[in-house]
Design a protein around this nucleic acid. Structure first.
Length: 549
RNA sequence: GCGCCAGUAGCUCAGCUGGAUAGAGCACCGGACUUCUAAUCCGACGGUCGCAGGUUCGAAUCCUGCCUGGCGCGCCA
């Protein structure tokens, strides 16, 4: 029995109790969940439903819990029910009922964990979106990992997700980039407002390799701009691909200009009555929608602002049919939240149509000291640098195991350790151990068989492991709903721990020439189920699941 | 000044969107290798959940105020 089905049974038992007691059924929630009590004396699962609804229904929580418990106790699979404290409902399952999950998991395979909590949602998920003026830096790297994991987690929860990267290869940032390339190609220092760093030299050299006559051409700056942007962007794309992050759409701001979409957006906003002229410029009255100041769409010199393109891009996404737009920004851009939300409201969309996730900064530590980052000095830490230092798996894992709300101190020394202090190894090693057992079983001709007796899985380590395995779909659903993929990583660590403890205490394969026992066979199913779930969890994070380490 | 985020064990962080005695890893101390890979496991130590109020059967979690730290507040992109 899964926690989900048990929760449904708790709810229907409560409904039945309400009917029999003549209570008002409108006090009942649409759905409920059971939790795993920390204290094993409190059973396998606990429900607080009686505490939650008793007051609303005008009854005593303990008495109500008693009624619910009596009905639950009659169900197949429920071994025991108890009432504790003010009205906690503690439920103990039969070993056979909780052990069945292992077989279900093995059969479901890679599909286990899939849930439909976001079914029907059509999501546009935008992240990274760095302009091609330099390599992806540490902050962008965080989103490359978290955004990709979030896309996977949402898809595993039934949502249709398009991952998208928005960039501009024509703005003044790019001009400064082009000027920097040109200066370095001439052997001059980069301009005051230019970009420093070794990559600028490398790109400049590469442009010269491809266009040996670039400096003598009619418009050298233009040659460097076009070729430099292309080289830079290819490098970014390659780096992201090597990192395992895939984008469905690379969207260029230029397209909005070329298609006249800024004018269209302006017209739409004007018709809606949110645009006004002042000081020679055209403004959007974003303060009407909670922004702290109104924003300029068209400057007094007639040119568009970047904000105007944001409006057009928003409209473009909505017209492509997305009902939910998720935008991931670094904390250094959180000042945009107010105006971006105002765009959404100005177009008449419901609150919640646009969701903006803010990720805090990433600091790199080495030998306990912060690695100072400065674009000007060229000491910016890039995605490639981090990957080179600690590898793709460790980087992705390190960036996805923390809540986006909290700043990360990424300790290079810790994440390069091949030991249990490094969480990614802890999880991957658990996975590889399952393969080890299954490999040994195969070599010795010990078969898992077509079925097993779930009631034999009664060891505390076995029931802990089973309960952990059963939680996976709910973890994925919660991670998707809350946009918090770090929950999957934390879950994987918990599951890995439960497995390590199980394998330590519970012998799976026969010792020496002893025959295979029914318990051993049931355990083999449990090992296989753990293999499936660890692999699925790591896959959601984009981290590899090695069979040997 | 205003806004966003954070403050939980010595350190790094979880805490299942209000539940039972607040957890994990690291560090430190003490144990388990004749192994299914010890990249593991077990035990011990360690807390005024920033502070003060409030909401209720019940608060680390929700509300208000304050303190501390990070980030941000352009007709820049």
């Amino acid at each position: 029995m899964t926690p989900e089905t048990l929760a449904e049974k708790v709810l229907s038992a409560t409904r039945a109790a309400f009917a029999d007691l003549g209570l008002d059924a409108t006090a009942l929630p649409a759905e409920t969940a059971v939790e795993r009590p920390r204290n094993p004396e409190h059973g396998d699962y606990a429900s607080t439903i009686a505490l939650q609804v008793a007051k609303k229904a005008g009854t005593n929580p303990r008495a109500l819990a008693q009624e619910i418990a009596a009905r639950l106790a009659e169900l197949d699979g429920v071994a025991k029910t108890d009432i504790a404290g003010p009205g906690f409902l503690n439920i103990t399952l039969d070993a056979a009922a909780s052990g069945g999950i292992a077989g279900q998991i093995v059969i479901a395979g890679t599909a286990y964990g899939y849930n439909e909590s976001m079914k029907g949602a059509h999501v546009n998920l935008e992240f990274v979106s760095a302009n091609p003026t330099g390599p992806v830096h540490a902050g962008g790297t965080r989103w490359a990992a978290v955004g990709d994991a979030l896309a996977r987690v949402m898809r595993a929860s039934g949502a249709k997700v398009t991952s998208e990267y928005y960039f501009n290869d024509a703005g003044s940032q790019i001009d400064r980039f082009a000027n920097s390339l040109l200066a370095r190609a001439k052997g001059e220092p980069v301009p005051e407002d230019g970009y420093g760093g070794a990559y600028v030299d490398e790109i400049a050299t590469e442009v010269l390799n491809r266009h040996p006559d670039a400096l003598e051409s009619e418009n050298p700056r233009e040659v460097f701009r076009v070729a430099g942007v292309e080289l830079m962007f290819n490098e970014i794309k390659t780096t992201l691909a090597d990192f395992g992050t895939h984008f469905d759409v690379y969207f260029n701001e230029k397209e909005l200009h070329d298609q006249g979409e800024l004018d269209a957006a302006l017209e739409r906003l004007s018709k809606l009555g949110h645009v006004f002229e002042a000081e020679g410029a055209t403004w959007l009255r974003t303060t009407e929608f909670g922004d702290d100041k109104d924003r300029v769409l068209k400057k007094s010199d007639g040119s568009w602002t970047y904000f105007a393109a944001d409006c057009a891009y928003y409209l473009n996404k909505r017209e492509r049919g997305f009902g939910k737009l998720v935008l991931m920004l670094g904390a250094d851009h959180h000042g945009y939240v107010g105006r971006m939300q105002a765009i959404s409201r100005a177009f008449g969309d419901e609150p919640g149509t646009l969701e903006i996730l803010i990720g805090q900064m990433v600091n790199l530590l080495q030998e306990g000291r912060p690695v100072r980052m400065s674009k000007r000095m060229g000491t910016v830490v890039t995605l490639e640098d981090v990957v080179e230092a600690i590898g793709v798996d460790a980087t992705r894992y390190a960036l996805t195991r923390y809540s986006a709300d909290s700043p990360i101190d990424l300790d290079i020394d810790l994440w390069t350790k091949h030991g249990n202090e490094n969480p990614v190894y802890y999880v991957q090693y658990a996975h590889s151990r399952t393969h080890g057992v299954l490999r040994n079983a195969a070599e010795r001709g010990v078969a898992k068989g077509d079925g097993y007796d779930a009631s034999l899985l009664t060891h505390p380590r076995e029931s802990d492991l089973l309960k952990a395995l059963a939680e996976f779909p709910a973890t994925v659903a919660t991670a998707a709903e809350l946009r918090e993929p770090h929950r999957v990583a934390r879950y994987a660590e918990e599951l890995a721990g439960a497995y390590h403890r199980f394998q330590h205490d519970c012998r799976v394969l026969p010792v020496g020439d002893e025959p295979q026992t029914p318990t051993g066979r049931a355990r083999l199913w449990l090992v296989d189920a753990t293999r499936v779930v660890l692999a699925n969890a790591l896959d959601l994070l984009g981290v590899s699941a090695p069979e040997r380490m």
